[in-house]
Nucleic acid binder design. Structure first.
Lengths: 155, 155
DNA sequence: CCTGAAAGGGACTGCGA
DNA sequence: TCGCAGTCCCTTTCAGG
């Protein structure tokens, strides 16, 4: 576990909000010279604190506004069964997230779809064909209340 | 709904993978001049296709490796009840996502915690104090099988 | 750990096609 | 739309404290 000082936290907060902020602007906001600022950012990247930088698409604008959460139960929790299922999940580009769960269902998935008709297609051609599935339960999200990729770096 | 040509899709694919790629490198990869490339990126930003650029933190490295999915049922689905609940949710920095759901539970939340003890703290001091809650059901994720912020721009 | 200087490269704009 | 060319700013490294 890496320890982060106040300046590191400020850097992380700012870059979580704007991943393309220039080093010069970042340095200015934390009152540090650009070279010192860059060295800290590189250190955070090298240490693995910073996982990466990404562009986010607007789900609506690209025509996939709907989120569906899917609980999946497997016929068996054997290692082979899980591995086969997970391999297939990772290859399906409609599945945005997948978690192995404690509790009732074995897996929780999030799929992004273009309405119910598109979800039916995804269900038919992908989800129902995932190996070792015994039960699928789909839950539609009506609206996203909030969503963030940013963690609060408590100072 | 905006129509995106093949070049736009390539731009979106590349920037979703690396949000800090320089315009010069991006232009090179799509075989376009930097000025033409930059113009397209700006158009995609202005049109709202690109929602933004963010840095991603490694949940493990910052000491919050655990994801908990929480189904919440309200005492009433009246508009006031929903609004009060959602306002409180948006102010809680431990809640990473919240969706209004169709189906059994009213809301689905994701919380990032530092182990079960930390989740107990979050549950006690935040979740159980959210207004109008009748039932809370917590589901721990044992492992993240896959997770992406990137949509496939089918070419 | 920091600052500052210097070189090299990128971002952005205006113009002609 | 594109590409080109010019200007300005940023990135990055290195020397020195």
């Amino acid at each position: 576990m890496i320890d982060l000082d106040v300046v590191d936290r400020k850097i992380l907060d700012l870059l979580q909000e704007d991943g393309r902020m220039t080093n010069a602007e970042l340095a200015d906001k934390i009152n540090l010279s650009p070279s010192a600022c860059l060295r800290r950012v590189r250190r955070l990247e090298d240490e693995g604190v910073i996982a990466g930088y990404v562009m986010l698409l607007d789900q609506r604008a690209i025509g996939r506004p709907d989120d569906i959460f899917i609980e999946i139960t497997l016929v068996s929790q054997s290692q082979e069964c899980q591995e086969a299922f997970e391999r297939a999940v990772r290859e399906c580009r409609d599945i945005m997230e997948c978690y192995l769960m404690a509790g009732e269902a074995d897996y929780l998935l999030r799929v992004a779809a273009a309405g119910t008709a598109d979800y039916e297609r995804i269900h038919k051609s992908h989800l129902s064909r995932l190996p070792g599935v015994s039960r699928i339960r789909s839950n539609f999200a009506l609206r996203t209340v909030c969503k963030t990729t940013a963690f609060t770096c408590r100072i």
